[in-house]
Design a protein around this nucleic acid. Structure first.
Lengths: 171, 171
DNA sequence: GAAAGGGTTGCAATTGATTTGCGATTCGAT
DNA sequence: ATCGAATCGCAAATCAATTGCAACCCTTTC
């Protein structure tokens, strides 16, 4: 298995690249650059993990409190359309967004106890999927694989669960 | 690849088994058998494929027009809780339900053109997932794999797409 | 560098799926 | 048949997400 590691610190080059990519997209589409969009994407690409709209909006509001849900939603749609961001749904009923192409395609393992989402990538898995599609006369554009279960390391798992619970009470 | 085949005809034994399983569950939980629940599960297990709540309600209303959304939703939740039915979401924003354990666990290929959902199962894929989880110190309870793409058989694909479009106009 | 045209924003209202409150009804153990 | 609890049906509420619209702000043009 190849666990996917995300950089720990904000990579300014990465952010710049994304911002440039978005500017390109905006231009190609004949849309406009705006203060709000800049704020949103700048904040978004400095976050890591699987961001919900609410989480993103909270961060965005720290920069510009007048930005509301609608603009965040609309900008996120543009980001998805521009292929700079992927939308995911893990069954808790709300969409999460992930800046990708830094870490290449990957799949997810979701712990039902502590909520930890780990990412992994395995070329044999990918190859096998291609093979199966081939046999079924099907062409894969993208796929989604999610493993739901629990961490075997109960100690670490409980720690995460508790810190999450504390967070929920506190905030 | 092992495509999963569903029986073409309603299998009365299968339906009976499911009904019995549900009765068991209801009893264990100290809940009650009701006319509505009986109707809903009887109708549900005679349908095949990935049923949306609306589809199910339509069918149910043919038997008892007074049954409404709430009861169907509530019954479906019980069915999921009892493990007789699986809930799935394919990204079109509405839940679909599938009676399972007739056809064992399987994954999905979804054509983005014609909407066809095919099912498949591959033991190597399953084994590989287990292996990856093992290496990551993770225990899998369940997983979800969806391949999104297009049928290579354009003719069949278009036919399905058109018949679906016609249906939408007609109904 | 002002005006024009069109995309964008923020807010509130809307949608669409799903859930819930509640009075009326039905179930099932006694 | 009776009684308490579970269930139903409906309408109202919820929740995430979308949309209508008047005010606003980019960009291009002159």
């Amino acid at each position: 298995m190849t666990p996917v590691k995300r950089p720990k610190e904000v990579d300014e080059n990465f952010v710049k690249e994304k911002e440039a990519g978005f500017a390109d997209f905006i231009q190609r589409k004949g849309l406009k650059t705006t203060r709000q969009r800049n704020t949103i994407i700048s904040v978004f690409f400095r976050l890591r993990g699987h961001i919900s709209v609410e989480e993103l909006l909270n961060e965005v509001k720290k920069v510009n409190p007048r930005i509301g849900y609608a603009t965040v939603y609309r900008t996120l749609h543009l980001l998805v359309e521009s292929n700079l961001v992927e939308e995911r749904r893990f069954g808790d009923g709300l969409a999460r967004y992930e800046g990708h192409s830094d870490v290449e395609h990957h799949d997810h393992m979701i712990c039902l106890e502590c909520g930890e989402i780990s990412e992994f990538f395995n070329p044999r898995l990918e190859a096998l999927q291609e093979k199966l599609a081939e046999e079924n006369n099907f062409e894969i554009f993208r796929h989604r694989l999610e493993l739901y279960g629990v961490c075997k390391d109960k100690e670490a798992c409980n720690k995460r669960k508790n810190s999450k619970a504390a967070e929920a009470r506190g905030a």
